[in-house]
Nucleic acid binder design. Structure first.
Lengths: 225, 225
DNA sequence: ACAAAAGTGTTTACTTTACACCCATGA
DNA sequence: TCATGGGTGTAAAGTAAACACTTTTGT
């Protein structure tokens, strides 16, 4: 037992993991193996340990519950509704993650009976206030992809322009002119051709690479992200 | 005493309150009246109660410690470093606020021995990790003012174009061409002239008003904030 | 030769920047 | 009448949007 002079809320972390499989945008959910909301789908997450930051906790829970590891996450926001958990006062710090969906064999583990990807437009009903968290996460994703090079975290290290365009179209829910898209992306100054090409069905497509070094220089010069 | 099966961190809220007094940008700080960091300057804030959301807690602490009440705040982010408080594990949820500096007689109260405004470029050294919070808050402010009508929260309900321009220049640390600034602001479509004017030193300046209704319509039509 | 997907350039519209003179008021 | 700050328009540059034909590959 742990005792405190004043009441303390419990603190959890949750990870909204977005993945891309070549066509549509998905989110990684786990089926809860324990109460409350047993057998409901929810974001991977769990109670914060005393010796880890929220970010470390979120990564640990993600690894334990889905097998996904070593990825980039960033804080979304804290959700602090008083009644969001029936057990006791629990607030959660939600994180956003972006991964190449095919890099991971997601497997349920620990408190998760099962883990799988759901297309973001075919989500099941979610435990706790996770539907609200999902709304905020999608808004943030749509906002950020326009100002930060998030898309490259969802692609292999080399990619074609149409793969890149597919991500933007999936996230923003609109289509772009192929020629203008191509021009605009190259004009950013941090996407470089590799020289290789990738073949699927028609003419082979050139492969590009995101250059983090050039990106850093680009934002320095242009003073806006 | 309050006992739990697993250890719980303590949770506080902190408010980074930005104010504008007609010329420069300031932040509201309190001098801590209790340990730890007694007599250091810090953001107003304190422990979260079990029956309030983080936002409610932040507003309550702000009221208790500085007398500032009934203002708009928004969540900045949670700060969760393991060693950020010497007493026990404490994580804080930081909020951002924007106020008309002259609307409030700030007064120290509760755990705060004193409360006063500091120009953001003349801040004292801060308690806990509040210097880090300040950095994040300023980054966020600079980012948001370019995309959201924050400036109007810092001004009286009617204002002149040069007052508005002064805020943008103070926050972003750069100057703008008076004519282009004027055009751009009116082009937003949600700033309307009141018909009145304000006199200070030369020719009287037209007074404008921020129209929240027009703003709502403007973001609907332009689909980007 | 045909189907499928990829590569590419030009014109037009729009947005942003640069820039200077006249006006209203108080001292 | 002078000093102070406010109001305003136009031309040039840059950015974004519209738009269609040709190329490479596999079948």
């Amino acid at each position: 037992m742990y005792s405190y002079k004043y009441p303390h809320p419990a603190v959890t972390t949750d990870c909204v993991v977005f993945g891309f499989n070549g066509s549509g945008l998905s989110a990684l959910l786990i089926k809860r193996g324990i109460e409350p909301y047993k057998d409901s789908w929810a974001f991977p997450g769990g109670f914060l340990h005393m010796d880890e930051t929220a970010e470390q906790g979120a990564l640990r829970e993600l690894r334990e519950e889905t097998g996904v590891r070593d990825i980039y996450i960033e804080q979304l926001q804290a959700f602090t509704g008083v009644e969001r958990d029936p057990r006791e006062r629990v607030l959660t710090i939600a994180f956003l993650a972006f991964v190449r969906q095919d890099d991971y064999e997601v497997i349920g583990g620990d408190d998760a009976a099962e883990a799988r990807w759901f297309p973001v437009d075919e989500l099941p009903s979610l435990a706790f206030d996770h539907a609200e968290i999902m709304r905020v996460a999608l808004d943030r994703l749509r906002w950020k992809i326009q100002y930060e090079p998030l898309a490259f975290r969802l692609l292999n290290s080399t990619f074609t322009m149409s793969q890149l365009q597919t991500i933007y179209e999936a996230v923003l829910g609109q289509t772009f002119d192929r020629r203008n898209f191509h021009k605009k992306m190259l004009a950013m100054g941090y996407i470089t051709p590799t020289g290789d090409s990738l073949q699927n069905n028609g003419r082979p497509a050139m492969l590009y690479r995101f250059d983090a070094e050039l990106f850093r220089k680009a934002i320095e010069n242009k003073k806006v992200l």
